[in-house]
């Protein structure tokens, strides 16, 4: 039985798709058979970040509506074994995601995969609801800013009330905080919330901190998830995240400014 994990946030553009691509790739790299499902119907871009946009023939909606089989729609990743992508439809509207259809597809995938990652669209509407409904775990992607934290808080409320596990009174969804685009310098300057601030408000365990990194944009443009490049900070942060997801204990990196020497830290260098 696969573990179903939703990557969600409420707020748009915080790094859900980037995280879904890298975490999914990381899981497969470590030997776990993984499928990534793009729930962002009408705005699909998981296939772009995964670099398989030219190989999309059928999509998730086709499968839901019985117009194609899962076998036909699943795209096999070219770089890593055990990794598949189920792309979203760019042409249909999001109401085409029916609950029964989503359930049927997830059930079918469950028998064959170890992990199913659902890349949620932004917002709290139908698409986001469908992406989280059947989840066992949730990775809540948050940026260190007030509006993102507030939206994540709202999403956490919905995870606790509007999902199958909540409605049927099963064990609650396991929640993880992924703090993305963390810019230690700006945090130091007081321009962004600290890790402590965010943890204090959201009150869920941290699964990873991904630094703000130029490597992410480059990787996206090339269609190669950043986790492939272990010389980059973001790549390392994502692989650590995957290891924690698998139960390993790994210290958080990139949460303290690095280049400043011991002395400048002691004497503060004029900073607060």
């Amino acid at each position: 039985m696969a573990k179903i994990i939703v990557i969600t946030s409420g707020k748009g553009g915080v790094g859900k798709t980037t995280s879904c691509a890298s975490i999914g790739t990381g899981l497969a790299m470590l030997g776990h058979k993984t499928v990534l499902i793009d729930f962002d119907v009408g705005l699909r871009n998981l296939d772009l970040i995964m670099g398989c946009e030219r190989r999309v023939v059928y999509d998730f909606i086709n499968v839901i509506h019985g117009e194609a089989s899962l076998k036909q729609a699943l795209i096999r990743d070219k770089r890593v074994e055990n990794l598949f992508i189920l792309p979203a439809s760019q042409t249909r509207d999001k109401d085409a995601l029916t609950q029964e259809g989503v359930e049927r597809v997830l059930k079918e995938l469950s028998t064959d995969f170890d992990f199913i990652l659902c890349d949620s669209p932004a917002g709290i509407e139908h698409g986001a609801h469908m992406a989280m409904f059947y989840a066992d775990e949730a990775i809540v992607v948050t940026n260190p800013e007030v509006s993102s934290v507030r939206d994540s808080d709202r999403i956490l409320g919905l995870l606790n009330s509007k999902t199958q596990r909540a409605i049927e009174g099963q064990e609650p969804i396991k929640e993880h905080l992924l703090l993305a685009r963390y810019d230690v310098e700006r945090v130091e300057e007081g321009e962004m919330l600290t890790l402590e601030d965010v943890c204090e408000i959201l009150a869920i365990p941290v699964i990873g901190v991904v630094p703000e990194s130029e490597a992410v944009l480059k990787a996206s443009n090339q269609g190669v998830p950043v986790v492939h490049d272990q010389t980059t900070d973001a790549g390392q942060a994502y692989l650590d995240t995957v290891k924690r997801l698998l139960g390993e204990q790994v210290d958080l990196k990139f949460i303290h400014p690095e280049k400043r020497s011991f002395l400048s830290r002691v004497f503060g260098g004029g900073r607060r």
Partner: peptide, 8 residues
């Protein structure tokens, strides 16, 4: 202390 929220 917020650290109690950290997994690891």
């Amino acid at each position: 202390g917020w650290r109690s929220w950290l997994q690891a």
